[in-house]
Amino acid sequence: MNIEAYIPVLITVINAATPLLLAALGELVVEKSGVLNLGVEGMMLMGAVAGFAITIVTGSAILGLAAAICAGALMALIFGFLTLTLLSNQVATGLALTLFGVGLSALIGVNFVGTPVDALPKLVIPVLSDIPILGPLLFGHDALVYFSIAMVFVINYWLYKTRSGLKLRAVGESHEAAHALGHHVIRIRYMAVIFGGMMAGLAGAFLSLSYTPMWVENMSAGRGWIALALVVFASWKTGRVLLGAYLFGGITIMQLFLQGMGVNIPSQILSMLPYLVTILVLVLISRDSSKISSAAPASLGKIFHPTQ
């Protein structure tokens, strides 16, 4: 077998995994603070359309990425204001945020459908990129791919080795106790929610500027939901988010290849694969409910209202 023939497949796996990884890492931090934001899909779409539109208008991919981050953060801010300040239900608000994002991104993007854009530049390093097998696999991706992997380590270090990370975990574990010790529960949660929005926005921008450099309505196609499932799948651990993202990326690409190879399975079934696996994994994980409840942040999804 010729290994080099599989290199392009592995590279597409990396590309398919990156948006999942970015969005899931963001949501992991949000959930570690005790907030459940189901609006990842909506924030991703807003990031995708904002990144795409600003790149087209200004011609600068950097500004495009910045716009995507801002769009995600703004969406998250809406969610934060509703759930943290006005104490609305997190599940309902998150669902509404997704619906809102789907609609608003389609509206903004209506003039950009079919417009071509230059994909994000690849980091090609002479010599290194030419190493057989490893060269194309490790080098020659765009910056977001490296950024997403670096963030796994950064977030892991931050959560478990710094004081602010400890505070965030404490707030997610018991907001009452954190409040009693004088930590600012709402402020910490706002920061976490906004960070989650930025990461989701960036994940969206990766879709519209790198993965398939164009804007199509609803182009995230359920990846926001997969990212949410990934956090549970990973039992709120950063390393497992990385593993899960690449596993799901792999399944996404595998079904494309199976379709291409003309396997005698209806293509609709193959397209369902990543989502079926998501459901399957969630069912398998939740068979032991005590495992889930001991891994999940204990205050996840609970409204915090301090007495004055």
């Binding site: 975990r169 574990e173 106790a177 009693a180 010790l181 930590h183 001991s294 204990a298």
Partner: peptide
């Protein structure tokens, strides 16, 4: 008690 079940003794103390 204002303690965090999933954190260690030292982490709980650091938070206070």
């Amino acid at each position: 008690f204002s303690l965090f079940e999933a954190l260690t003794v030292a982490e709980n103390i650091a938070l206070g």
